[in-house]
Amino acid sequence: MVSTPQPTLRDRAWSAAAAVPDPELPMLTIAELGILRGVELVDRFVEVTITPTYSGCPAMAAIALDIERALHEAGIENTRIRLVLAPAWTTDWLTDEARAKLARNGIAPPGARGSNCLFDNTPVPCPRCESNATERIAEFGATACKSIWRCTACREPFDHFKCH
């Protein structure tokens, strides 16, 4: 009989933290967003490092509480959440699955990894009909990380997850 190795405390903590959904984009986990930066064992504590999508992100307090709850539910008691601002979060940290989930949920994902999309006037493809015939309606949407666009082909409004 072959025994399977038991996951380490760090592995269990990573799995629990990685499964936490983002409160503003609940179809994505904090791991898929790239907010979850690390899980380490430090001085008898499980220390989870997170980076906000921008320095004033109001969701970080809720995310920290959700991580602590997920760790507790996984049987992990001694925890610390560490918020780090450097290096600054970038949309390059979004996983391919996160980009696909955004599009499936009617939110245009940010430009391709490594692109200079902050200064790029390339049209944002419509997540519904994939047309490039789109126009920006407002620079800011329901959250600071999204802008509001409209497709002139299918006439549907949609959010665009801004690149940064």
Rank of each mutant, 00 (worst) to 15 (best):
T134K: 03
D66H: 07
V39M: 08
N116M: 14
T29D: 01
L94N: 01
A144Y: 07
L102T: 04
F140E: 04
P26F: 09
P109G: 09
G106V: 02
M27Q: 13
T29R: 11
A142M: 14
P123A: 09
I35W: 10
F119L: 15
A86D: 11
P109L: 00
R44T: 15
V124N: 02
E68R: 15
G34Y: 14
I67R: 00
T91S: 13
R99L: 03
D92E: 04
R44K: 12
A98T: 01
S131T: 05
I35K: 09
I67D: 12
E73A: 13
S147H: 04
F45I: 03
D66W: 05
L71H: 12
R104I: 01
T49I: 12
P52W: 04
T143W: 11
E32C: 02
R69F: 03
A64L: 03
P26D: 12
T49C: 00
A142G: 09
D66E: 14
A133Y: 13
L33H: 06
R104A: 11
A103L: 02
P127S: 07
T49M: 09
A138I: 09
H72G: 09
I107L: 06
G141W: 10
A59Y: 03
D96R: 11
T49V: 13
L83R: 15
C57G: 04
T49A: 05
V124Y: 05
P123Q: 03
Y54I: 01
C129N: 01
A70L: 10
P125I: 07
I30D: 03
I137H: 11
T53R: 08
G38D: 08
V42D: 10
V46K: 03
P26S: 05
H72I: 01
L83V: 11
I67M: 07
E32P: 07
L33F: 04
I50Q: 08
I76W: 06
T90Y: 10
V42M: 00
A59I: 00
D96M: 03
L102R: 03
I107Q: 07
D92W: 12
P125N: 02
A70N: 08
S147C: 13
N132W: 06
V84Q: 14
P26H: 10
V84P: 11
T134P: 00
E77A: 12
A74L: 14
I67V: 14
L36S: 04
L65P: 00
G106Q: 08
G75E: 09
L83G: 05
S55G: 05
H72E: 15
A112K: 02
N132S: 14
P58R: 00
S115M: 08
E32F: 05
T95I: 05
T79D: 05
C117V: 05
L28Y: 09
N132R: 14
M27F: 06
N116H: 15
D96T: 10
A112I: 08
E73I: 09
E130G: 11
A64S: 13
R44W: 08
A31N: 09
F45Q: 08
C117L: 04
R113C: 14
S131N: 03
S115V: 07
R104K: 13
N121P: 08
G38F: 00
R69P: 02
A86S: 15
I50V: 13
W89F: 06
Y54K: 03
R99E: 00
P87V: 07
P58C: 01
E47T: 13
R80Q: 13
A61W: 04
T49P: 00
P123H: 04
I30T: 09
T95F: 13
